[in-house]
Design a protein around this nucleic acid. Structure first.
Lengths: 214, 214
DNA sequence: TTGCCTATTCAACAAGTGTTGAATATAGTG
DNA sequence: CACTATATTCAACACTTGTTGAATAGGCAA
């Protein structure tokens, strides 16, 4: 995200090409919906090379997920900690939570957009959620919820958790880019329009949080 | 839902046992994460029987999805149409949209809970969303959005669509029952607690809709 | 040159996949 | 009983899966 976009790397680093291809395919078809051979074909490398670099298929999946998770998680932590002063508003906290994803999408690197879809896949999967989300993101969510507790000192913890859950769901469906909002709105809204999605999401969620937690 | 729960059907109707087993496995592992042999084993029938009754694997998937989709869609339509009078409040409209899912969960039949997770899988999947959701549910969503337009005559259509999108995401993550809210809240909240999830969701979404669309 | 390490390809394995046709059981009808 | 249609099982097929060990290429140091 801070680095330059590494697009059009078709002639260099095969190792990263494997990661990029796996990322794109896993994001769209899920773990079981993708074969190593499909990944290798898209990356234009031999089938055995993925195994050489990353080991088993499951290890490759972890490698794909971890590559950008660290960056994303760090960004969230920075933004939340930066405004750790007790002057923070609800809108600021929500924005700090969403901003890294918005920035990831705005990068020229198309890999980031694929990664966000992969993140949505992991978030909504009953089997992957525990395994993958606890590695990096759960810690940041705890920080986010702590900030919410400061803002709503009188709210029960349960309500805050459920409110976060709703926001997390809205976020996940946005990241997934299923194309449903395009279809239902007859093309007037677009799944790929993250700017609008995030812009509207902040006041939407802020009002909802206040209603339930205040 | 209106019929009696058909639990403990282990000694009868093998055809329905296949559907039930496929439903449970597809919901948890997705389409590609499940083999016909796993389904047959769980249903305690021969591998070839699934093919005999439902044809190809993809046809079985459709059969599983369609079985309860019709009921769910009809319920939504009834509830929305019943209060078609211009006296309906925002809360009533949202409740009419969520109620069928709440009722499905409250049934004794554990198959319904599996089905809701399957629905979440389809809703969040980039590949399945278009194929499956357009068959039954898109029509009801259009009705739901029409009701929202009546309530917010001055709101732009885009905003209404995005608000629906957020709610749909929150709903999908709830249906998915990933166990994440359990983990983050240290067990204080539970993914299976649909009652609380729906109860809080109505005021949450109502306030959010008003903020953005009013 | 030789030697060595890493990267990459090739060919192949054993296991598992969806699917199918024939064989067998079951139940209902005359 | 026999006849028939449906339901179920059995065995096997052709194909794909992840994975691996041996073979090859390329770069770099001595």
């Amino acid at each position: 995200m801070t680095e330059l976009a590494t697009q059009n790397n078709k002639e260099i680093n095969k190792k990263e090409r494997i990661l990029d291809s796996a990322e794109a395919l896993f994001a769209q078809h899920g773990y079981d919906g993708v074969t190593i051979r499909q990944i290798a074909k898209l990356a234009e490398v031999d089938v055995a090379l993925a195994n050489y670099h990353f080991g088993k298929k499951l290890d490759l999946f972890h490698a794909v997920f971890d590559r950008r998770a660290q960056q994303l998680s760090d960004q969230r932590h920075k933004l939340l900690a930066a405004q750790q002063s007790s002057m923070q508003t609800l809108e600021q906290v929500i924005e700090a939570f969403l901003m890294p994803l918005k920035m990831a999408q705005q990068t020229e690197d198309p890999g980031w957009r694929n990664y966000l879809a992969l993140l949505a896949y992991v978030m909504t999967s009953p089997v992957w959620n525990k395994i993958m989300m606890s590695k990096f993101f759960d810690k940041r969510v705890v920080e986010f919820i702590a900030a919410l507790k400061d803002i709503f000192p009188n709210a029960s913890e349960d309500k805050i958790h459920w409110c976060y859950h709703y926001m997390s769901g809205a976020l996940a469906l946005t990241l997934a880019q299923t194309g449903r909002i395009d279809r239902i709105s007859n093309g007037k809204c677009q799944s790929t329009d993250f700017d609008t999605a995030y812009e509207l999401m902040v006041p939407f969620m802020a009002a909802a949080f206040r209603k339930v937690c205040d």
